Amino acid sequence: MKKVLLLSAIACMALYACKKDSTSTSTPLTETPADTIDPIALSAGAKVGYGAINVKGTFPLASSDANAPVLDTLYNGRVYDAISNRYIVIYPRVSAGYLAGYYLKINGADSYFKIDYKTGYGLRKAQQKNLFGLRDNNGDNSDSSIVIKLPDHLKGDTFSISYAAYDTLNRISNTITAIVNVIASADSTDNSKIIGDWQVSRTKYNNDDWQIISLTDSSNYNYYTCSKNMLQTSEDSTDLHLPDNIGSGSFIFSFGTMNLFASAQSYKNIQLNHETSSCSNFVYDIVNSGDYLTKGGYSYNAATKTITVIQDEDGTGSYITTLPLKVKEFTSSKMVVYTTYMSEGASHDEINQITYLELLKK
């Protein structure tokens, strides 16, 4: 079972190496970076979840009413990583008041979006499909998300967003600013170099030996003898030597067109059934199994030898992570990538662990 367990251990390339975006504890920026993406074109090309409508005009101002919603200013200036054609997911925090929706503006645009959670909820219940990740809080949307689907082939690297909450009486909260860092290679052909399915074959930590993770792993071998064509445990090393448990699993990274990334993990554990097995027919029952698919976006920069993966679950994820993978080796049939982890409290540039993965092209 070691290899099956290892699959889970590397599901996020050593979980601590991933940066959680939407609830990151990093210090927000004190200054807003200059926007380098055309805000008018972006506002026209972006899609905002929950049936949001694009309204021409000036962004609404905060209400003077003391009962208006209040957004937590801790999140003002927070930076969110993003990839073209993928999703930005923001979970604002409401300090006071009831939330009916949001006003959202891509700064510099000549319009803003109105997000109505009542409309979004109705659409979701009617269609039972992904409408950009609406979380059902039984009418309380105080922790609902803002989800933006970016257009493809964005030129530039940053833009900023302003958003404010409103309640059923259209009382408007304070405005919060979010900074979006769009990760992309300067060479538009870079992504095509790694497109395809890659089987995770081996892994190692620091300078340890490589461990194969994609093959079947058997454990808890026992000796058996036959009695009336039934298996009986034995201590004689000359008798049948059979595994009691067999674990198997696989882990595949898929880099697709339009910046689509997916990781598919599967595992299965089977156990020898002593009662139904015979001396000529060994019966194994499945005791546990699972298949997990994680979706997100990616961008490959050949100049810096970095693949950036952002897990966004097609806009439905509440745990959005950014994972930079450094490419150590790269051929048409094999990649070796690695990531580093610095433990909490470690001094600057002190690396505690390096996790390597060997990927074989399928």
Rank of each mutant, 00 (worst) to 15 (best):
V89Y: 00
K105L: 11
K129L: 15
Y121V: 00
I90G: 01
A109C: 05
A109M: 07
G122D: 10
G133Q: 04
K114F: 02
Q128H: 14
G133M: 07
G133V: 11
L134H: 03
F113S: 04
A96T: 07
Y112R: 05
D110I: 06
G133A: 08
I106F: 04
Y91A: 14
K105T: 08
T119W: 01
I115S: 04
N130R: 02
K129N: 09
G120L: 03
I115T: 10
D116Q: 04
V89L: 08
L131K: 05
K114G: 05
I90T: 06
A109P: 01
L123C: 06
Y103W: 10
A96G: 04
G101R: 08
N107V: 13
L134F: 05
N130K: 03
A126C: 08
Y117I: 04
Y98S: 14
Y121I: 00
V89F: 00
Q128W: 09
K118H: 08
R93P: 00
G122I: 03
Y102Q: 11
A100L: 01
L123E: 11
Y103L: 10
Y121R: 07
I90C: 06
L104A: 08
Y98H: 09
G101F: 09
R135A: 14
P92W: 03
L99E: 03
S95H: 01
R124K: 15
Y117R: 06
A109F: 06
T119V: 15
S111V: 01
I90K: 03
F113V: 02
K105D: 07
Y98P: 00
Y117S: 02
R124I: 08
F113N: 02
G101Q: 09
Y117T: 03
R93F: 10
L134I: 14
K129E: 13
A126W: 07
A109L: 04
L131S: 09
I115V: 15
L104C: 09
Y117G: 01
Y112G: 04
A100P: 00
S111H: 11
Y91W: 07
K105F: 03
L134S: 00
G97D: 03
L104M: 11
Y103S: 07
D116P: 05
I106G: 01
D110W: 02
Q127H: 10
L99N: 11
R124G: 02
T119D: 08
N107E: 10
R93H: 10
A96N: 11
G133E: 04
I90P: 01
V94N: 07
K125L: 14
K118T: 14
G108E: 01
Y98I: 12
Q127C: 09
S111N: 15
G120E: 01
D116T: 10
Y98K: 14
K118L: 12
S95Q: 12
G122E: 13
N130L: 02
P92R: 03
D110V: 09
N130Q: 04
Y117D: 01
A126I: 08
L123T: 06
K118I: 13
S111D: 13
Y112Q: 04
F132S: 11
R135C: 06
R124S: 13
Y121Q: 06
R93M: 11
K105C: 07
A100V: 00
L131H: 15
A96S: 14
Q127V: 07
G122N: 14
Y121C: 00
K125G: 05
T119E: 09
Q128D: 13
L123R: 10
D110S: 15
G97W: 05
Y121A: 06
D116E: 09
A100W: 00
R93S: 13
A96P: 00
A96M: 08
L123P: 00
